[in-house]
Design a protein around this nucleic acid. Sequence first.
DNA 1: GACAACCTGACC
DNA 2: GGTCAGGTTGTC
Length: 269
Amino acid sequence: MPELPEVETIVRDLRQDIVGRTIMAVRFLNRTIWRRGAPAKRLLIGARISSLERRGKNILIILSNGRVMIVHLKMTGRLTYQGSSDQMRKHTHLVIDLDFGQIRFNDTRRFGYLDLVRPDEIDRLDYLSVLGPDALFISREDFVMMVRSKKRIIKSLLLDQSILAGMGNIYSDEALFVAGINPRRVSASLSRERAGRLHQAMIAVLNKAIGARGSSMNDYVDARGEKGSYQDQRLVYGREGQPCKKCGRKIKRETIGSRSSHFCASCQR
DNA sequence: GACAACCTGACC
DNA sequence: GGTCAGGTTGTC
């Protein structure tokens, strides 16, 4: 699925394309994608899109009537804006007609979900309030303290959204490679210096990936239906058996915390 | 921490 | 046929 850079790219695109537009009609093609059942259409129709926000991997669409639509794309979700006449893809579950163009939510595997909440609910939602600080904005000091205070396999810790929001499998592997840290290392065993290096690597990788408009390994496309290009510059993810870009030895793939992990056993200690 | 579950599709 | 996939949640 989309990780932080992909979600950030979609949010930035949609800010350009749909802020100020008015919802004219809504089509629920599949009601099961709503976390708590499909909302009344009158809560959406007539509202204007005021702004967009990202919280971890969640997309928040704030409406002029105060309601907030929350979208999580999970593995194969797509949130796109296009002309109303564009051909409808298979697995499109929601269509929102705007005064110009339309928003579509498409999700092959149907792991993704939507929610529509009242403004007063937003800060009490369990699935948002559980999120840790955003991976892109956590300070070096806080990051180092967090890493060294937990006794967790570092790869799993990076993926834990309640500790750090936004990191996913690709960018965790990439950041650990850049920092030269073995994914199996226990977080508390890292020196301040190495934990700081990981913080720096993580933010550099995320920003580079945002610059490349995300990674399109399989399904990901941005809000305009275009692929990202970070997959062309990844250093370890999906490169099992290929030469390490630093030392030339073969990149390994092992399962860590039931996620596949890619790393160089020689460069990452 | 390990694993199954939620789903579909691509690939071997 | 089996395996794997950018995620998360719930159960041992």
